[in-house]
Design a binder for these strands. Structure first.
Length: 271
DNA sequence: CCCATGTCCTGGTCGC
DNA sequence: TGCGACCAGGACATGG
């Protein structure tokens, strides 16, 4: 269930357990994820994890000869466990380490990915077209306003476009627009610079708060140690269609946009 | 049958 | 007409 906060929570959780650790075995139980896990992942055997980075929702494990890219898709989770713990359904991939632990990927829907790149991380073009990281200084005042010029797409769809800004998925797009008081159906080009500046601040604060609380657990997301995230308790509109707005008691409404559900308060959120 | 946290890809439309 | 940018929707697999 990962959006950016969940992936970042995952990165923070697994990093201390696997950095500087040597991989002794690579186990592929089911290679058919979004793309087949390549045979070349076996080349990781014997190598040491140098760093665990994140770009957008991609986890990047750096080794001396290349990078292992992991994406959790819609339903992926990663845990660091004792390597001899029994395999569960949908446990597709393990990195086993010399200290007896294993990084284990579980992904029921198999929309996730495990890829190995030597030298050129972007052989597949997955990272080249991505917009700025929302928590970086590249995502700043004026950016969204400039980017939105002539864009007639609804603001909700605009925010979820990875070429605009990465990491803002359906949950946090809904939450940020509620907090910013912007109707999700407004055209991106019709929003003022001032409102975009406020929205930029809100996106940063919503994502940061979610990371601090360990992400949002809806069904299956867990942190690296198996604990759930607690941000679900902070959700103001996502998943609350038909219920009262916490601010004004108006009934929250739901619309479909680009095949995704948007929940909003018709009173607090304005065109 | 409905719905679901992501995103690549296809095919259509629009403007220059 | 051509080209590129933009945009809507399908597709993927499994579970609740």
């Amino acid at each position: 269930m990962p959006e950016l906060p969940e992936v970042e929570v995952c990165r923070l959780g697994i990093s201390p357990h696997i950095i500087n650790q040597q991989v002794t075995k690579v186990v592929v139980r089911n290679a058919s994820l979004r793309w087949p896990i390549p045979e070349s992942v076996q080349k990781i055997t014997g190598q040491v994890v140098q760093s665990v980075e994140r770009r957008s929702k991609y986890l990047l494990l750096r080794f001396s000869t290349g990078t292992l890219l992991i994406h959790l898709g819609m339903s992926g989770t990663i845990r660091v466990i004792e390597a001899d713990i029994a395999v569960a359904k949908h446990d597709h991939f393990d990195l086993v380490f010399a200290h007896g632990k294993a990084l284990r990927l579980n992904d029921p829907r198999r929309f996730g990915a495990v890829l190995w790149f030597e030298n050129h991380i972007d052989e597949q073009g997955l990272l080249t077209k991505l917009g700025p990281e929302p928590l970086s200084d590249d995502f700043n005042y004026g950016y969204l306003f400039e980017k939105a010029k002539n864009r007639k797409v609804p603001i909700k769809t605009f925010l979820m476009n990875n070429q605009v800004v990465v990491g803002v998925g359906n949950i946090y797009a809904n939450e940020a627009l509620f907090k910013a008081g912007i109707l999700p159906t407004v055209k991106a080009c019709d929003i003022s610079e001032k409102r975009y500046d406020r929205l930029t601040d809100i996106i940063k604060s919503v994502l940061s708060a979610a990371i601090k609380q360990g992400g949002t657990t809806l069904k299956d997301f867990t942190q690296a140690d198996g604990r759930p995230g607690y941000f679900a308790q902070s959700l103001l509109v996502y998943g609350r269609a038909g219920q009262e707005c916490f601010t004004c008691k108006t009934t929250l409404l739901e619309v479909r946009q680009s095949n995704r559900s948007s929940v909003y308060c018709p009173s607090c959120q304005l065109p």
